[in-house]
Simulated assay, not measured.
Amino acid sequence: MRVNCVGAIIFDASDRLLLIKRGRPPGLGLWSIPGGRLEPGETDADGLRREVLEETALRVEIGRLAGTVERPGLGGDTYVIHDYLATVVAGVPVAGDDAADVRWCDAGDLVRLPLSEGLLESLKDWNVLPH
């Protein structure tokens, strides 16, 4: 089954990317951008605002679509993930829900941390890497 998902590409004023450490499968222990599955009837923007708030305690404004990827999900599902640029409008990042940790990362962190499969390549392809 194809499952619609969303992800948020969020930068701070120092051009660092917000990453969460996955606290549950798939990707347990890997670093990724905040996001998750849409609930029935939920728009991408509503789902993304909800997921970011649940995982990071941040309120965001949703920007343009950066790109779409497909990844293997649980139980043989395929996750169709729409990743959007987003801007923090309120809050301080705190790990919550299925995020085990949250942090702002610079370009050097992205090559050192264990990232979700394909994340770095997608960010490069979409030209949305921290400088």
Rank of each mutant, 00 (worst) to 15 (best):
Asp46Cys: 10
Cys5Arg: 12
Leu38His: 05
Leu19Cys: 00
Ser32Gln: 06
Ser116Pro: 01
Val102Ile: 10
Leu48Val: 10
Tyr84Cys: 01
Val89Ile: 15
Arg103Ala: 11
Leu18Glu: 04
Ala107His: 12
Thr43Leu: 01
Trp126Ile: 07
Glu51Val: 05
Thr78Ala: 07
Asp98Tyr: 15
Val52Asn: 05
Gly73Arg: 06
Ala100Phe: 04
Ala99Tyr: 05
Leu28Ile: 08
Glu54Met: 12
His131Pro: 15
Gly29Val: 06
Glu54Tyr: 01
Arg49Val: 07
Gly47Tyr: 02
Thr87Ala: 08
His131Asp: 13
Ala86Met: 09
Ile62Lys: 04
Val89Arg: 14
Ser122Val: 12
Ala95Asn: 06
Leu113Pro: 10
Gly23Asp: 05
Gly47Ser: 10
Lys124Tyr: 02
Pro25Arg: 13
Gly27Glu: 03
Gly23Lys: 01
Glu121Leu: 10
Pro34His: 03
Val3Gly: 09
Cys5Ala: 14
Glu70Asn: 07
Val3Phe: 05
Arg2Trp: 11
Trp126Asp: 12
Asp109Trp: 05
Cys105Phe: 02
Ala13Phe: 12
Gly7Tyr: 08
Val69Arg: 13
Leu115Cys: 09
Pro130Leu: 07
Ile10Cys: 04
Leu85Arg: 07
Leu113His: 06
Asp98Cys: 10
Leu38Gln: 03
Val80Asn: 10
Glu42Val: 12
Pro40Thr: 06
Ala86Leu: 09
Val3Thr: 15
Phe11Gln: 05
Val94Cys: 02
Val60Ala: 08
Pro26Tyr: 02
Asp109Cys: 01
Val88Asn: 03
Gly67Thr: 08
Gly35Leu: 02
Asp77Val: 11
Gly41Trp: 00
Arg103Asp: 00
Leu17Arg: 03
Pro26Gln: 04
Gly76His: 00
Ala13Ile: 12
Asp109Pro: 07
Leu119Gly: 11
Gly96Asn: 08
Pro130Trp: 11
Ala107Trp: 00
Val60Ile: 15
Leu48Pro: 02
Glu51Gly: 07
Asp106Gly: 15
Leu53Lys: 14
Val111Ser: 14
Asp109Ala: 15
Val69Asp: 14
Ala99Gly: 10
Ile20His: 00
Phe11Thr: 01
Thr43Pro: 05
Leu113Ala: 08
Gly91Lys: 10
Leu38Lys: 09
Leu113Phe: 08
Asp44Ile: 04
Gly108Gln: 09
Asp125Val: 14
Val111Pro: 00
Glu54Gly: 12
Pro130Thr: 01
Gly35Ile: 08
Pro72Phe: 09
Thr78Cys: 07
Pro34Ile: 05
Pro130Glu: 05
Glu70Gly: 04
Arg112Ser: 11
Thr56Pro: 04
Arg50Glu: 11
Val60Asp: 03
Ala90Ile: 04
Gly75Ser: 06
Ile10Gly: 10
